[in-house]
Amino acid sequence: MTRKAWAGRRGRSQAATRAGMVVPAVMIYVGLLVVPVGYAVYYSLTDYNGFPSQTPEFTGLDNYREVFSSTDITAAMVVTGIVAAAGAALVNVAALGLALLLRQTNRFNTFGRIVMFYPHVLSALVVGFLWQALLGPQGVVNAMMEKAGASSLPFLSDETWALWTMIFVIAWALFGVQLVIYLAGLQTISPDLVEAARIDGAGRWQVFRAVTWPSLAPTVTVAIITSCLSLLKTYDVVVSLTGGGPAGSTKTLAYNILAVSFPERRVGLASAQAVVLVVAAAVLAFTVLALRRRAEEGAESVG
């Protein structure tokens, strides 16, 4: 056998080994994540009740028309948008502010970090039930207020109140995660830069504007993307805190898909909503990433 042929055969068998090592991951990922997204796109163009005996009937864009014209679903989209935008703003401002306060590592701050983070290990469903017991019409807080002579507050029984209560509860449970991300980001800022700014006579706010904030930019992007993406799929808290009510005022799109359209056996409609949400998530992620890249390039050309 010539040397070249041998090398060729060895190369081929190596390539086969390599492909073989990637296959299991590809199979699970494609089978249970990519194929379902494909199915969602396909079902979204059909009328299907989900029974194995029925075949999906092709109906074109009917489901999408319904998604964008049904007042129930558009309302759910608006709620999802408010939850994602207001929730992300609240979570990130709170987390960044606290990260600056808890920056130094000492006992007190470590305790503070643990206390801010712990709701995350409780799971959103449990957090929702807990706050429901606290803020419900007969809940702990209202019982106390009535006892103190004040009138009770409609935390979960008024439509506007319920939405903002839900956003507050989500932020309560979520901002600890972003806090950890911001603390990690703050660790990467070189103390030399801060010191140099101080020597040049910069005050606290100036140091933050000129050193901390620009160095933190990548962290801010990551924190905003991750918080927006996880808020876009808000479902568990809706189930346990409000059940979508009152009068559908806290129904998110994910809740509408899993708790309304699916039990109604409207697989096509549920899939169309899922596709809308997947597209929204992708657009959001790519927009934030692109903005960030542009900001980075801008910073480079200035520097």
Binding site: V35, P36, A254, A274, L277
Partner: peptide, 17 residues
């Protein structure tokens, strides 16, 4: 790209798979 897919939302097609 899979990192950006909101997983709970595609649960219904997952049922059929």
């Amino acid at each position: 790209a899979g990192m950006f897919v909101p997983t709970q939302v595609i649960l219904i097609p997952v049922i059929f798979v």
